Simulated scan of single mutants.
Amino acid sequence: MRKNNWACFLLILAGIVIGGFIGSLLPVQWLNYGQTFGLSSPVVLDFGILCLTFGLSIKITVASILGIIIGIIIYRFL
């Protein structure tokens, strides 16, 4: 049976969210060790009648990486 790529993507995304949530709840310091990258301030495009603001910041922690690994393991057993 062919596996669905969307299911893999959703499990990885859920692993990132749940891992980050667990990392913020637990007082273990090494779970929250990570790196933040992206735009430090948002980019603003003002066209007079339309104003667009773009911004992106991603924080990768040990807990979110563990969540990704658990999501991939769950996907393999589906």
Results as ranks from 00 to 15, higher is better:
1 M>V: 12
2 R>Y: 01
3 K>Y: 11
4 N>S: 13
8 C>Q: 09
9 F>C: 08
9 F>T: 14
9 F>E: 02
9 F>W: 12
9 F>S: 14
9 F>H: 07
11 L>I: 08
13 L>P: 04
13 L>T: 10
13 L>C: 07
14 A>P: 14
15 G>N: 06
17 V>I: 13
17 V>L: 15
18 I>K: 01
18 I>H: 06
18 I>M: 10
18 I>C: 10
21 F>W: 11
22 I>T: 06
22 I>S: 06
24 S>P: 02
25 L>Y: 12
25 L>K: 12
25 L>I: 06
26 L>Y: 04
27 P>H: 03
27 P>T: 11
28 V>Y: 08
29 Q>V: 09
30 W>G: 02
31 L>S: 01
31 L>M: 02
32 N>E: 10
33 Y>I: 14
33 Y>W: 13
34 G>N: 04
35 Q>A: 01
35 Q>V: 06
36 T>V: 01
36 T>S: 01
37 F>Y: 11
38 G>P: 00
38 G>M: 01
39 L>V: 11
39 L>E: 03
39 L>P: 04
41 S>W: 06
41 S>I: 05
41 S>G: 03
42 P>V: 14
43 V>L: 14
43 V>I: 09
44 V>P: 00
44 V>C: 08
44 V>W: 03
44 V>I: 11
45 L>R: 08
45 L>F: 14
46 D>P: 01
46 D>Q: 08
46 D>M: 11
47 F>G: 11
48 G>Y: 11
48 G>P: 05
48 G>C: 07
50 L>R: 06
51 C>A: 07
52 L>E: 06
52 L>P: 04
53 T>N: 05
54 F>Y: 10
54 F>A: 01
54 F>I: 02
56 L>A: 05
57 S>M: 15
58 I>C: 07
58 I>S: 12
58 I>K: 08
59 K>R: 14
59 K>S: 10
59 K>I: 01
61 T>I: 02
61 T>E: 12
61 T>R: 00
62 V>P: 00
64 S>F: 03
65 I>C: 08
65 I>F: 05
65 I>E: 00
66 L>M: 08
67 G>I: 13
67 G>K: 05
68 I>F: 13
68 I>K: 13
68 I>D: 14
68 I>P: 15
69 I>N: 08
69 I>Y: 12
70 I>G: 07
70 I>H: 02
71 G>Y: 04
71 G>E: 09
73 I>D: 09
73 I>V: 09
74 I>K: 05
75 Y>A: 09
77 F>Q: 15
77 F>S: 12
